[in-house]
């Protein structure tokens, strides 16, 4: 049986390549039909905000790539509730159906995966 990989994405969408390059690992894994999960943590939660205007900073829209996750079979999406709360985003609508987790739930999440990559 294939090992399950959790990708922990900690970078905001417009602070460099971190968010895009974490996402690319998830999409590549999905393309190979591997069991992939993604956790948005710390500034990574900013990736989930809808209605971003990347053109204002002359960037390509990351949201389109994020929306591709379910198409690539990556449905196990999680977001750290504490990271949301610390940024005043708890309760805001998110662009992807990510399950909010905190505290021991996060520890349980890490336990469920064989492999973890944090970017």
């Amino acid at each position: 049986m294939a090992k399950a990989m959790l990708i922990v994405s900690r970078h905001s969408p417009w602070s460099g390549l971190g968010a895009r390059e974490a996402l690319d690992i998830a999409l590549a894994g999905g393309a190979f039909e591997l069991p992939i999960g993604m956790l948005f943590l710390d500034d990574g939660v900013f990736q989930l905000l809808p209605g971003q205007q990347p053109a204002a900073v002359e960037q390509k829209d990351l949201a389109a790539n994020l929306q591709a996750l379910p198409l690539f079979g990556v449905d196990d999406l999680y977001v750290c509730r504490q990271s949301l709360r610390l940024r005043g985003l708890d309760g805001q609508p998110l662009a992807l159906p990510a399950t909010p987790l905190e505290g021991p739930e996060l520890a349980d999440l890490f336990d469920r995966y064989d492999l973890v990559i944090t970017l």
């Binding site: 294939a2 090992k3 990989m5 690319d24 690992i25 590549a28 894994g29 591997l34 492999l115």
Partner: peptide, 11 residues
């Protein structure tokens, strides 16, 4: 090479 090589190695 591509990211598939990372997944293959990890598997």
């Amino acid at each position: 090479s591509g990211l598939g090589q990372l997944h293959e190695a990890a598997q």
